[in-house]
Every structure is written in structure tokens, then in C-alpha cells.
Write a protein that binds this DNA or RNA. Structure first.
Lengths: 186, 186, 186, 186
DNA sequence: TATGAATGAGTATTCATTCAT
DNA sequence: TATGAATGAATACTCATTCAT
């Protein structure tokens, strides 16, 4: 009824998740305090434990909360597939949702569990999917190189803070990346 | 090697640096305790402060201690230059010296100072050097993509833990990367 | 009094302040640990930081918390003024509140900031006020001697632990001190 | 033979004692580190332990090392006796020897042993000697007040840092103090 | 004898987390 | 249900002191 306190459970949860994603992305797991997250969300810190159980659990929730991804058709070749992935690299942080889970994990890869999950999702997920697109020998190596390129682009933008990609014309970037990937189709 | 040579200033300092590089690379700055480093080096933790001043100073010493780099002649083109950088990516962790400083920083990029230094060294150093090798338009973008590829390869190996690169034939890797870089020489 | 009223912010804060005053007065700033203070107050040591910020801040809070002082009318002569100050010297430690701030500072005068504040409060405060009461030459010197007498009495009681003053008849003390001060009114 | 290292045991001991007196007087026992003392004396810190056993032992040695005092004839009355003590108060720190032991102890009165010794020397020594000079009733109280005056003057100069006494004409100070003490000879 | 490397007990302070209301 | 007081384990760092050379 009264405006200020009328935050329902779902809204608070969501506000905490958003704040957590931003903080974890910016400062990593260890560099982020629960009280900072709660302050960003405008609620008391203990709600984190009420809603998520622990800081670690909140982190994992932040990882898995947003994954529409929509990777497109499975039958496409490597160039088209890489181009689809490129959307993720180029678009993220546009919305307020925060960074891609992969970058969240990268930033907190000190934790063994995080690292294990990162390894699993990259190797068994993205790299495997990519390798499927390549025929002939060296499929794994070629997939790895494409994955490295895309991941490296994300790191450049989100961690190193290079201004090149955000300022570049997306179509030019697409063309250049496509050329690099195409060079692997021997 | 065997008898750890007690009461040897230089040896202790060096053992601490080695241990620090390994721990920082593996768990990041925040995830590493001075006592763990000291335990790895087989000495008392207070020697870290005696020899380096603070944990932060030890971290910086670990960053700047190695890497002669020897990047070769300045007149080479982008393909040759990238190939030279590839040596660093492919060879590291071979000795027990630990990771490349760039990866150390990446792992501790939660700290603002670390992030600032990472940004500076990558953008003003590597990327600028790369951009000099490209003629024509989009030099910065093309340099960024080559840098992203190489950095991504390092991340794949050292953070994600992908087994592909360590197990691949270095010559094949060289050839594939050369092809990708060459595709940018439009 | 009896039931320490758990979960009471004001009571805890006050208990910490009391304990701090006692410990700091008895062992000085450096000789007192935050855990001892907390133990005396019956609470956890981290509350010191929650409520005061740091050990140093707690010390300063202990200095400035009490002492309404109420030094009486400004128009009085030196004898009456000294007599008013004597109240402070003779009465303190009666309640459990602890020592006078001046003695707290004296006990921690190793710290430069404490010493600076002590100098300021004594010279610019008490001594200046005293000097105003003296006419004729040597006003500063005479004020200094009165101040030294009163300060020395406090030190005798609180630091040296001489039993004479606490056991003496206050009226006799007053008369003797008044005679000494009067001897300065040449 | 060779100049630099030709410091014999006695000279080193003495240099350490001097440095210790100065440091302890300035910063108190807790505020002084053995390494600082050693640095001031220009020798290695371990010599403190070789020569004195411990920091505490060095402190005690610094207390008892200088005490010529030469308190003059025992048969004098209170005014003359106080005047003799005044010499100590007014002259000290003139030489490089450092502060009077009483002030050293005052500065480190946080330590229980120091406090005990301070109590003993003041009450059983100075105050008892003073009380002997007073006839009639209130001898102890009158002695205490004279002692407080003299001690307070030392504190004013050495701890509070009041500039009045060092800058005043010694003869005027003597006359004023004599008047105050004489006022107690009822 | 004297140097300096090594040590371990101790410090203030921070943090995620749990009670009580 | 939600607030905030309380907690205890952990951290970097300092210091007097001892051991090896």
C-alpha cells in the first residue's frame, strides 16, 4: 500500500541478482562484499542469506540467471556459428544485466569450483559445439582458436578495457572476424 | 636443489618469488594468503615483509621479475610479429617460473591498480606495437583482433585449462595462427 | 546493571567506552589491546570497529566523552579558579567513569597526535585561562606553576599512586593549595 | 687499529644506553623499538640482547644509569630542599643524557613493574625525604604538594611541552617556587 | 665477537554469517 | 518477514628475540 516498503520478494531477489552480477563482474568474487551488493540493491545484507543461502550461492545464481543465448541453428558452418557467438561478445553490457557468465567466471577463476565450471562450460560446451562445425583434421585446434579469438575479444573489452571494439563499426568487426575464421576452413 | 640452503638471502627471496608467481597465477591476489606463499617456499611468512615490504609489493615484484621478452626486430610485418608473440603463449609454464605477467594481472584484475596496469601494458604496449605493423585502414581493429586471439589462447590454456593447445603440435598451431593473421592483411 | 541487556546498541557502546577509559588510563594506548577492552565490556571485539571505527577513534571518543567541566564564572581570581579546578583533581575516579582526559593523554603521550592534543589543551586552554587571572608581571610563569601543581597532584594520585591525597581531608587540601596559589599573588 | 670498527664494548654499551634514554623518554617503552635504538646508536640490534638481555632490561639499565643527584645536606628545611630538587627540574635535558628517570618511568607507566618502581621511588624516596623537612601536622600532605609541584613542572616541560619554564628566568622561577613552598610552613 | 637471516607470538582489522527481536 | 546487533574465523603485518655463520 505504502509506496516505499512495497517491494515484494521477487523484486528484491531480482535487485540483488542484478547488483551481484555487476559487482562480481567488476571486482571479482573476492573483491566484492555482501554488504556492497546489498547496498547497491537498497536492501539489508541479511536478505542475501535469506534468499540465496550464502555469498557463494548468490554467485552461482548470478551465473545461471540469464542465458537466453539463442545460439541459432545447429546446422550452420563455423563462420556462421562464430558470427552468432560474436553477437554475444559485441552486445553485452548494452543492457543493464551485466556481463556474460563466462566473463563473470573468468573474473573469479581463483575459486576452484568456479574454475571447474568454467572449464566444463567452455570445453564441453562452446568448444565442442565449435569443433562439430569443422571437418577434417585439427578440428579441435581450429575450434580452440576460434574460441580463443572470441573469448579474447570479450576479455579485451571487459577486463583490459580496450576501447577499440566498442568504438568500432560492428559490421567491420564482423567482416574481419569472418575472414579469420574462414582462414581456418582449409 | 635438495639441501635448501638455509640462511641464504638470495635463495629465500627467489623461492618466495617463485611461490608467489605460482600462487598468484593459480588463485589470484585476493585468493592467495602470504602464509601459503611462505609455506610453499618453505620459509616463515614474515620474510615476505622483510624482503618485499608488503603483499602488494611482492605481487608487483612477481609481475616485473621475468620476461626479457626480446620481441625481435621492429621491421617485421604482422604475421612474423604475431608468430614471435606466439612463442610466449606456447612456451610459458614450461619452466617452473610460472605464468606470464599478463595472465597474472588478468587473474587479479579485481584490484583497480592491477587493472590499470593491465590496461596500460596491453593497450599502450602490445596493441600499439601490433597496430604499427598494419597498413591501411582499421589498423587498430586488426591489431585488437590479433591481440585478442593471442590473449585468448593464453586464457584458454592457463585459466580455462583447455588441453588442446598444450597437446597440439606447435608447428600446426603456428601455421593456423599465421593463416588467421594473414587473413587480416587485406 | 545485572542483566547486561543483550542486543542493546547504546548499552554496548557505553560499556565499551567505560572499559576503554579504564584500560587506556591504566595501561596507556599501546599497552591496551582491543580484545581486552571488549572482554572487559563483555562483548565481541569487532563491535569496537562497528561502533567507533578503529582503536584510535575509540581512544578519542574516550577522551571527549565526558567532562562537562563547568569551570564556573570567568571573573574569579586565581585562588578561586584554582579551587574550582581542584574539584576535578580531587573528585575523579570517584565514579567508575575513569580518569580525566588529561591523564588519559598523559598516559599515552608516546603517540605524537596525543601529545599534540595534550599540548594544545593544556597550553591554549587551562594555562591561558589561568594566566588571565593573574595581573602584573610573570603571569605566564605563575599560571604555569599553578597548572603544574594541579597536574602534579593528578599524576601523584593516578600514576604514582600516592595514597596521601585520597586519604587526606579535602578541606585541608583546599586550604593548603589555596595558600600556595595565594603566595603567587604578589 | 682501523678507525671505524674500533668501538669497544664499553663505548657501544654506553651509546646504546644514551640512545635508549632518548627514545624511551620521547616515545615511551611501547612506542620504542629495539631497532630504532640500535640505529640511533649506530650498531646492530642484536647487541642489545647481547649486552643487556632484553628490551626490558635495557630500559631498567637506562633508568638506573645516571643518578649523581647530589641532593645536598639532609639538615636543610623544606624551602632549601625544594630549591635543590628544582635544580634537577630546571636543568635536565641540558646535557645530552636525556630525561630524569622519574620522567622516563612516567612515560612508560603502563607497564606494571615500571609503575611499581615509580611508586616506590617517589613515595618512599622523595616524598619521605620531603615530609621529614616539615614539622607539625599535615607533613605528608605538605610534602605531597611540594612533590606534586615539582613533578608537575617536569611534566609540563617534558611531556606537555609548555615553553614557559625553559624560557623563564631561572631566578624568577626559584623565587616563585620558594614562595609557594614557604606558604606551606604554617 | 658481531652480523643478519629466521622465527613465532602478537596486533588491529575485515568479513561472511547467525541470532534475537 | 525483515532489521541490526553480535560473532568468530581469517587476514596482513610488526616486533622482540634466537640461531647460524
Amino acid at each position: 500500500m505504502n509506496a516505499p516498503k512495497r517491494r515484494d520478494r521477487a523484486a528484491t531477489r531480482s535487485a540483488l541478482l542484478d547488483a551481484a552480477r555487476r559487482r562480481f563482474a567488476e571486482h571479482g568474487f573476492d573483491g566484492t562484499g555482501v554488504r556492497e551488493i546489498a547496498a547497491d540493491a537498497g536492501v539489508d545484507a541479511t536478505l542475501i542469506f535469506r534468499y540465496f543461502g550464502s555469498k557463494q550461492d548468490l554467485f552461482e545464481a548470478a551465473l545461471t540467471s540469464e542465458v537466453p543465448e539463442g545460439l541459432g541453428a545447429k546446422e550452420t558452418g563455423p563462420v556462421a556459428f562464430a558470427d552468432a557467438l560474436l553477437n554475444v561478445v559485441l552486445s553485452e553490457r548494452a543492457g543493464d544485466g551485466g556481463e556474460h557468465p563466462l566473463l563473470l567466471m573468468l573474473r573469479s577463476a581463483g575459486r576452484p569450483e568456479v574454475r571447474a565450471r568454467l572449464h566444463e562450460e567452455v570445453c564441453d560446451g562452446y568448444l565442442a559445439d565449435l569443433a562439430d562445425r569443422f571437418d577434417g583434421e585439427d578440428a579441435a585446434l581450429r575450434a580452440e582458436l576460434v574460441g580463443a579469438l572470441l573469448l579474447g575479444m570479450g576479455v579485451m573489452r571487459a577486463v583490459v578495457g580496450s576501447p577499440v571494439l566498442p568504438e568500432a563499426d560492428p559490421e567491420r568487426v564482423r567482416a574481419r572476424v569472418a575472414a579469420m575464421v574462414a582462414a581456418l576452413e582449409s
